[in-house]
Nucleic acid binder design. Structure first.
Length: 416
DNA sequence: TCTGGGGTCCTAGGACCC
DNA sequence: TCTGGGGTCCTAGGACCC
């Protein structure tokens, strides 16, 4: 049996851990740039606040109901996520960390509701984060079980013990809530009269293959209890890494864009080195503001293939800036810029080029010294001059909570 | 005024090979 | 008038996920 453990309203719950005044009060967390709602406490959900809604549109509701609003604080959420996952690890032998707030747990020898409840309580006690756990034969069914655990049980745990229970649950489970059915496919399915998960499970497989591709067929099998998505027990190297940000204020000057792009490129290089990967492609893109319907839109992208895969900051920044020069047009005003590095290979398996004249050994040493200094003294203490000093393209983050667990200056003080 | 960021996988179609 | 059959690889775009 496979369990899906999912943190309830994760980011909102994280904000509560060190700020108990927020208990039972509505809490929302905003996306980067304080743009959209990306997490809501149950109280906020009850007020009708929707996922992904732009914050400025619900300003009235926020003020009227005294909703507690937070900018996104990934240092905090990432660290609490690590703690939650480590707590799971104390109880199961095999698990797959699926996202920042979810893990698939191997419950092959663990089918006991009381132990599930205990696990849930342990996470709550050790980390302060509430979780729900659903258990079933496959990942897809575990997702359904998790839904039920969250919405219809007090204990927050639910097990699909037999096929009859599965069938009854699928019969009332909306097809659009299935894992792998998105907006487009949900619409398509409803048009032909498929509204519930059970109806989907009984649909002709050829029709599903034709209309939803092989993924739809796998989904159908998983609903029947046949595993198509086994637990991934080894962490996979990322195939692409992207760093991008919207600007708080739109930008036209190429100098500021160069600062933003080189910073994103440098971040990509740092992420690569952390993964012990090198990339074989470097791409850069710009976006105008898509919400300005009157303005002419421009979404350029330029990618380079490298002769020798690299994770050197200087080299990746150079390619990104070269791309920027090729796509930048002064007649547009830009809202977003980003860098994508792709086709990664393990650092230890880089194919050298006969015509390479870069002293890669030296660069490797420089990067590792810079990484070490920044780890010890703080992010960006040492950076490339082209990144600039001002971060004039800065994000909007007006409601940021402290990094309680990852920065000494932000630690809570207890007076006794 | 104000609208996020980071991923994966699949498919069709084009280019190329023999 | 009439022009085969069987492959691989790559890419862009679209779907999905959190």
């Amino acid at each position: 049996m496979i369990g899906l453990a999912d943190c309830n309203n994760f980011y909102a719950s994280c904000e509560r851990v060190f700020n108990p005044k927020l208990d039972r009060k509505p809490v929302v967390v905003l996306s980067n740039n304080d743009g959209c709602i990306i997490a809501r406490s149950n109280e906020a959900k009850k007020l009708g606040i929707k996922m992904g809604e732009p914050a400025f549109k619900i300003k009235g509701i926020i003020e009227k109901h005294n909703i507690n609003v937070f900018s996104t604080n990934f240092a905090l959420y990432g660290d609490l996520s690590r703690r939650v996952m480590n707590t799971f690890r104390t109880e199961v032998n095999k698990m797959e960390v699926y996202s920042i707030d979810e893990a698939f747990l191997d419950f092959t020898d663990f089918l006991d509701k009381d132990r599930l409840v205990q696990l849930k309580m342990k996470v709550q006690k050790w980390t302060g984060i509430p979780v729900s756990i659903g258990v079933a034969k496959t990942k897809t069914l575990a997702k359904v079980a998790n839904h039920i655990a969250k919405k219809h049980t007090k204990a927050g745990v639910f097990i699909f013990e037999d096929e009859d229970l599965v069938k009854r649950a699928l019969n009332v489970f909306p097809v659009e809530d299935l894992w792998g059915i998105g907006r487009k496919n949900a619409k398509r399915l409803k048009e032909v009269g498929i509204h519930t998960a059970l109806q989907f499970r009984e649909t002709n497989t050829h029709w599903i293959k034709r209309n939803l591709s092989i993924n739809g067929v796998k989904l159908q099998k998983e609903l029947k209890g046949e595993i198509c998505y086994p637990l991934k027990l080894t962490t996979q190297r990322k195939k692409n890494i992207c760093t991008s940000r919207s600007f708080a204020n739109e930008i036209n000057e190429v100098k500021k864009l160069r600062e933003a792009v080189s910073s994103h490129a440098n971040t990509c290089a740092i992420k690569l080195r952390k993964e012990k990967s090198c990339c074989s492609t470097v791409g850069v893109f710009l976006n105008t503001n898509p919400f300005k319907s009157k303005a002419e839109q421009y979404y350029p992208y330029k990618m380079f293939r490298l002769d020798v895969p690299t994770n050197d900051s200087i080299e990746i920044v150079k390619f990104a800036l070269k791309g920027l020069d090729q796509i930048y047009l002064p007649s547009y005003i830009y809202k977003k810029a980003g860098v994508i590095v792709g086709r990664t290979v393990p650092e230890s398996q880089v194919q050298l080029s006969l015509f390479d004249n870069l002293d890669r050994d030296k660069r490797r040493k420089v990067n590792s010294v810079v990484d070490r200094i920044n780890k010890r003294m703080g992010k960006d203490k040492v950076k490339l001059a082209v990144q600039g000093t001002g971060r004039k393209w800065k994000l909007k983050q007006e409601k940021l909570s402290p990094c309680y667990t990852t920065r000494f200056a932000d630690m809570l003080e207890v007076k006794v």
